[in-house]
């Protein structure tokens, strides 16, 4: 079953969607960076103290 086809985006709408997608990507990247940096900060110098 298929619904009515959505109308194509105008160039301006497509550009707005592209900018929103980039912003979401930036937020996700920032979130990954936050968790990475936070993990290192919480582990502290002990992160290097491990049996080799």
């Amino acid at each position: 079953m298929t619904g009515p086809r959505p109308r194509p985006l105008t160039p301006e709408e497509a550009q707005r969607r592209r900018k929103r997608s980039l912003a979401i990507a930036a937020v996700l990247f920032t979130l990954v960076a936050i968790f990475y940096v936070l993990t290192i900060a919480k582990l502290g110098p002990q992160v290097l103290n491990r049996p080799l």
Partner: peptide
């Protein structure tokens, strides 16, 4: 409308 600008959010 089809979504706002990033600045609107």
């Amino acid at each position: 409308v089809v979504g706002g600008e990033v600045s609107d959010f």
